[in-house]
């Protein structure tokens, strides 16, 4: 990474009750990158985030934010951070604006214009003076985002930020995060279950399972993780004829919706085949020549999802 280290996590451990939730976790987040944090439920993602944000005290390990040790220079470290953990919970008896003003007072140096700018940015101009208890989940999420970026943090930590957002809102957030990372050099640390969203948004992804960091992948490594082969789904007029043509071309048909290797046969009018993207034109031509009408063709199967499942269920790791 070209930028400075904004977040350094070394040897983080946390036990809650009798469960060792986070085991010797170590990773870094750099200036200007969007860092994805992935893991199944109960993997330790939120626990790790809570330790970074000061909700929980690590049993051992070190957390440095902007070069400041969180344990000994808490206020200086947290001055660099903005974050949302789980659902954003504000002071319900205050208006959205009062919440932002209170937060601004604690940071210092945040003008009224900046508050107004952020309110416009998250699309809450019309409701910002209403009490938070009247907000929908999506509005609370927007307010949480507003609060977390109000002070132009160097590190933005978002735990499931797309909760409650409609597709438009998700896209807006994605664009916002990218702009912040690119234009302001903000390091973004985002945890989410939406793998497709993470694939589109993140520069790097870290996978955690059972409290153990399984590995980190860059965006390029993600794309190349599954090789050049892609999976394509064809909707055709004559599935049997299409299957024959594809097999004659030496292509392997993929059972519909399953990776368990068990052949389930083709769904009527729908075929799935794995092939290099470069052969797409050849295959389309062969099918049409063979008298098969192609109704639709779409690329399916997330390489990230496959990799994720393999790592978290198969116990593998990325070397």
């Amino acid at each position: 990474m070209g930028g400075a280290k904004i977040l350094e996590v070394k040897g983080l451990n946390k036990t809650l009750g009798r469960r060792h939730i986070v085991k010797d976790a170590s990773f870094d987040v750099y200036e200007g990158e969007i860092f994805g944090f992935l893991g199944p439920n109960g993997a330790g993602k939120t626990t790790t985030i809570k330790m970074i944000l000061g909700f929980l005290f690590p049993d051992s390990g070190e957390i440095r934010i902007c070069g400041r040790d969180l344990r000994t220079e808490y206020e200086a470290a947290m001055a660099c951070v903005g974050g949302i953990v789980e659902n954003p919970d504000m002071f319900r008896d205050f208006s959205g604006l009062d919440n932002l003003k209170m937060y601004a007072a604690l940071h210092g140096g945040i003008s009224g214009e900046r508050i107004n700018e952020i309110v416009r940015l998250v699309g809450l101009e019309k409701r910002i003076r209403d009490k938070v208890r009247k907000y929908s989940l999506g509005m609370k999420q927007r307010l949480g985002v507003a609060q977390s970026i109000l002070h132009r943090p160097k590190l933005l930590i978002l735990d499931e930020p797309t909760n409650g957002l409609d597709p438009g809102g998700i896209r807006e957030l994605r664009l916002l995060l990218r702009r912040m990372a690119a234009e302001e050099g903000t390091a973004v640390f985002v945890s989410s279950h939406l793998l497709s969203e993470m694939e589109q948004t993140c520069d790097r992804v870290c996978i955690i399972d059972n409290g153990v960091i399984k590995g980190e992948l860059t965006a390029e490594e993600l794309k190349s993780a599954g090789g050049t082969a892609r999976e394509y789904e064809y909707s055709v007029t004559d599935a049997a004829r299409a299957a024959e043509i594809l097999q004659n071309l030496g292509l392997e048909l993929v059972p519909n919706g399953s990776n368990d290797g068990e052949a389930r046969g083709q769904q009527e009018d729908v075929l799935r085949v794995r092939m290099d993207k470069a052969r797409l034109a050849e295959v389309n031509s062969a099918l049409i020549s063979g008298g098969v009408n192609i109704l639709t063709v779409a690329e399916t199967g997330h390489s990230l999802e496959e990799l994720f499942m393999a790592l978290t269920e198969g116990g593998g790791s990325i070397e």
Binding site: Y74, V85, D89, Y103, L106
Partner: peptide, 14 residues
């Protein structure tokens, strides 16, 4: 219980 403490914890205040 309400979670509003989160607003304060993530702020730069001990």
């Amino acid at each position: 219980r309400s979670g509003s403490i989160k607003s304060l914890i993530v702020a730069p205040v001990k």
